[in-house]
Write a protein that binds this DNA or RNA. Structure first.
Length: 281
DNA sequence: ACCCAGGAAATTC
DNA sequence: GAATTTCATGGG
């Protein structure tokens, strides 16, 4: 990877295994918007950027070399060799091999832990389109304004200072209570998100499940997308169907130390081929 | 009107 | 304890 600065942009040459749409619009982050020209606009770590990819050249606008090294290289997980991981996990099962080669540009973003926690609390019994709307309103109402059009994700302190009724503008329904409980327990230290990066997996899960409204699935997604615990294997409705129909002889443990990456390949593949999961198949 | 949505809590059996 | 119902909201 060769990195150069060009005006207000940073160019990264030689980026492999990255497709912006597959990665930013596959249900792991809910804050990226695709533009007409195929670029993506989004906010993370209090910075708003435009990202585009031409061949193997990644361009990040409104970005300094420092921001790239401190934030975006990590955010897009560019130091992990997904080609190698794909080769390895492809040996687990032929259908996984097919799913991985179907969308080889999926990467697991390294999002902010608190943002991942909140967005996956919001995700429960909900659809991706509405999740995006609620998250957008959450940022507009309670996040710091960082330019004409963009808002940072709300801080832990800000959200923990609110009550359920304050969140009414989100129209998130019963999830308001869960968001407040999560913010308060994280703010008080009762739930330690940083510890979840290194705790044994089951203990990290339990730590997050102290929050009302966080069960196994939301905990697994928070660990995978917020703490980069790539051994996590979240089972949502799609994945449960996929396991039953496509991998009846396998258990989550069979997917190994990169199960979370395999999960994303399978999740995306299943959503793109819903007919594969109907009863007769 | 009915059913579902990257689930989890509350209630009932 | 395991199975079922409820929880707000919006879209198909």
């Amino acid at each position: 990877m060769e990195i150069t600065q060009q005006g207000n942009s940073v160019l990264i040459n030689g980026v492999r295994d990255l497709d912006l749409r597959e990665t930013l619009d596959c249900g792991q982050s809910f804050r990226w918007v695709e533009r007409e020209d195929g670029s993506f606009h989004g906010v993370a770590f209090n910075k708003a950027v435009d990202v585009s990819l031409n061949g193997d050249i990644l361009k990040i606008d409104n970005c300094t070399l420092e921001d790239f090294k401190n934030i975006w290289e990590n955010y897009f997980d560019l130091t992990l060799d997904y080609g190698k991981i794909r080769d390895d996990i492809s040996q687990i099962h032929p259908i996984l091999k097919e799913a991985a080669s179907y969308a080889p540009g999926i990467r697991i973003l390294r999002q902010e832990p608190f943002e991942a926690l909140c967005t996956f609390i919001i995700s429960q019994n909900n659809n991706i389109k509405r999740i995006k709307g609620i998250v957008q309103r959450l940022c507009e109402n309670f996040g710091e304004k960082i330019n004409d059009t963009d808002y940072a994700f709300p801080t832990i302190e800000k959200l923990s200072s609110l009550c359920e009724e304050d969140l009414a503008p989100l129209r998130a329904g019963f999830r308001n209570r869960y968001l407040i409980d999560g913010a308060r327990k994280v703010a008080s230290g009762e739930v330690d998100l940083e510890k979840c990066r290194t705790l044994p997996y089951e203990e990290a899960r339990k730590e997050l499940m102290k929050i009302v409204g966080v069960g196994v699935k939301v905990a697994d997604c928070t660990l995978l997308f917020g703490m980069h615990r790539v051994e996590s294997f979240p089972l949502d409705v799609w994945m449960k169907r996929a396991m039953k129909v496509l991998f009846p002889e396998l258990t989550p443990e069979d997917f190994g130390e990169y199960a979370g990456i395999a999960q994303q390949y399978i999740f995306h593949y299943s959503r793109m081929h819903p007919d594969l999961l109907t009863e007769k198949n």
